[in-house]
Computed example of a mutant assay.
Amino acid sequence: MDILTIVIIGIGLAMDCFAVALARGAKPGIDKVRLALMFALIFGLFQAGMTILGWAAGSLFIGIIAPYDHWIAFIILSVIGVKMVYEGLKEEHATESDAASFPGITSVLLLAVATSIDALAIGLGFAFLDIQIAIPSLIIGLISAIFAIAGVMMGTRLEKILGNKMEILGGIILIGIGIKIVLEHLM
């Protein structure tokens, strides 16, 4: 498989990371640089790691997780999305104490799992096509990290324009991504 194809796959996989980072980057009162670096590291590692895991598991693992992967992603994204909509509707203004609302590692890890399930499937596909995994997983992880940073930084700008409405929009986007995942698997 050529590098351009892998880059296009990486961009496709990174879109969920971008949407999540955009939504979380719009939250006022959070250290955006720290958030961007955290998301880049965790999302990049998860996208690369899930690609490798899918490749390693091959056809054995697909029979176990495939019937449920879309529901897992939907539930995680929907719960976090509903929480974000709720927080956005509170209409509180950012204060110094909002820094305490920096997303916890558990929340970020759940988002990383939810957004990287497609990478698991891509890894399975790579295994079936007998593709070496080192370079593709590295490219996929790097692209996801870049998109996570871009999402947080763009969310910062949108938050200045839209305020707490951006968090509501971000929550709706996460719920929409979850619904899209379920619908794609049901069709």
Rank of each mutant, 00 (worst) to 15 (best):
M1E: 11
D2H: 09
L4I: 13
L4H: 04
V7H: 00
V7E: 05
G10R: 01
G12M: 04
M15K: 01
D16R: 04
F18K: 02
A19V: 12
V20S: 10
A21R: 03
A21E: 06
R24I: 12
R24V: 13
P28R: 13
P28S: 15
V33D: 13
F39D: 10
I42M: 11
I42A: 10
F43H: 11
F46G: 04
Q47K: 03
M50Y: 13
W55L: 11
A57F: 05
G58V: 07
S59T: 09
G63T: 08
H70F: 05
W71I: 12
W71Q: 12
I72N: 11
A73Q: 09
I75L: 13
I75D: 10
I75F: 11
I76H: 05
S78K: 00
I80M: 08
G81W: 07
V82F: 11
K83M: 13
K83T: 12
Y86G: 09
E87Q: 13
G88R: 01
G88L: 02
G88Y: 01
L89Q: 09
K90R: 12
E91I: 00
T95R: 03
S97P: 02
S97E: 14
D98G: 03
S101I: 02
P103Y: 02
I105R: 04
I105C: 06
S107K: 03
L110S: 05
L110P: 05
A114M: 06
A114K: 03
D118H: 01
I122P: 02
G123W: 01
G125F: 00
D130S: 12
Q132W: 00
Q132P: 01
Q132E: 11
A134W: 04
P136K: 00
L138V: 12
G141H: 02
M153R: 07
M153C: 09
G155A: 07
L158A: 15
E159I: 06
I161E: 15
E167W: 07
I168H: 04
L169P: 09
G171S: 09
I172T: 15
I175M: 15
I175A: 14
I175N: 12
G176C: 07
I177K: 07
I177E: 10
L183C: 14
E184K: 11
H185G: 15
L186F: 13
M187T: 14
